[in-house]
Design a protein around this nucleic acid. Structure first.
Lengths: 253, 253
DNA sequence: CGCCCGCTTGAGCTGCCTCAAGGAATGTGG
DNA sequence: CCACATTCCTTGAGGCAGCTCAAGCGGGCG
């Protein structure tokens, strides 16, 4: 099996470009970074709370979740990352993790050395801003999730997560927002939206009729996207895509 | 009334130092930034969604909340900031706000020009890292809140918020974690922990007996802090204070 | 004084959780 | 190829945490 792309950071650079301007020189520097690729099975912890890392994980394939664990062992997922996402970019600034990264599906990922990122960061001011901006986007998604968790009912929360995921998948070029792969288990989704697996099942059923969801072997097709977005009260502004992008938000007078 | 300190960023620099190392030269540069001070009454929106700003708000006095608004007008608060916090540091990287900043009490705050921060950021590498690190800490609190909101009951959520707030107040030198000012309304707290004001009232009562809380004119005294922390399953690691700090976490084998 | 705002208390309703069991799909060993 | 385990989804029934609606109460302030 040959590597999926010659330059590990290709997809990540695309991601940065969806939010920031980055000069050609800076892009070259980023693409020059080399990073070993790893793979792991579902349920594997890539990083554990307290662990000190000297690389950041760039998802190449599969879905990775960031979770917090309570004393009794229960976990809650607070973010999910797909191909092209650098799921612990923050680790460059804070090497001792205060979170867990877990493979939610079988995964491949690059271990991008901090040294490489740091060098780019120092040498190219626009890279520093782009990385910072991406960190902010990540935080913005967390803030949104917190708001959604505290303010909406379970059905609306699920709808919201689906909307966000769809757009991000589209941004990553892995599908369209109305038809995309979603290789997660209902239990895993439940852990993300703060419900139980049982209730999740009922919600999915109800959304399936209301927004005309169709599921086929790990994929989701949304026939009535407008309805889904209305249920979720969804506005993609918080994803911080560039204003000229078709993915940017439109609402808010 | 004379200004509370000659250099607007004094407290902010202290804040940075609680998480990062910053050289004396860099500190001087930060302290040299000048910023106008403003004041406003409770309920005032300092920044609204969609607004474009060229300054960041540094809290001098009072409490400011970051909130997300739903289509029906309901708001949920996802973060609160006290004196010394730069509550939209992110705006340096993302000038178009995707959030609201609202004064929860009467407030004074500095409008710190982005240009000044940007200049420091460019000239001093350690400032860039420190700012990034603070952004990450902010995100870490959001992640924690999301986890707490989705995983704990209302009573536990309130306990958690109190623990976090207490430590942050202590870090800011405004009180101790077991006796601190909390000038927020029960309705405002409810908005932060995702409950209703009515239920908030009952929770406060129950915590008051369990963890021996005492309230006296806008202040809270926690007689049984250990109990409160146990209820909340609280571990301050996620606040990312320096490891040698008395505020850093200890748990997690 | 009277108004408004924040807190409290009560009573009834409901969204969601819990517990429990059964079924489909996939994998594993004999 | 079949017996069996495991994982995931589904469905039902009962219970509770927390919401809603409604009313009363105290304090600050015009």
């Amino acid at each position: 099996m040959k590597p999926p792309m010659a330059r590990p950071l290709t997809k990540f650079v695309d991601r940065l470009l969806s939010r920031s301007e980055v000069s050609t020189a800076s892009r070259k520097a980023l693409l020059a970074i080399d990073a070993p690729i790893k793979s792991c099975k579902a349920r594997w912890d890539l990083v554990r709370t307290g662990q000190r890392v000297d690389y950041a994980c760039l998802v190449a394939d599969g879905v990775i979740g960031r979770s917090e664990q309570f004393a009794d062992g229960r976990r809650r997922t607070v973010a999910i990352y797909v191909a092209g996402d650098m799921c612990d970019l923050h680790s460059v600034a804070v090497p001792a993790a205060a979170w867990n990264l877990t493979a939610l599906t079988e995964c491949r990922y690059y271990q991008v050395p901090h040294t490489g990122l740091h060098a780019c960061f120092d040498a190219h001011e626009d890279v520093a801003m782009a990385l910072w901006r991406d960190t902010v986007a990540d935080a913005s998604m967390l803030a949104k999730l917190a708001a959604v968790l505290s303010g909406l009912g379970a059905r609306e929360r699920v709808a919201h997560v689906l909307c966000e995921y769809g757009i991000r998948i589209e941004a990553a070029g892995l599908g369209s927002r109305s038809d995309f792969p979603l290789p997660l288990t209902q239990s895993q989704l439940a852990e993300l939206v703060g419900t139980t697996p049982v209730h999740m099942s009922r919600i999915v059923r109800s959304l399936a009729t209301e927004a005309a969801l169709e599921q086929h072997r790990g994929n989701i097709a949304v026939r009535d996207l407008a309805m889904l977005e209305r249920i979720a009260d969804f506005d993609p502004t918080y994803l911080l895509f560039r204003e000229n992008s078709p993915l940017a938000g439109r609402r808010r007078a």
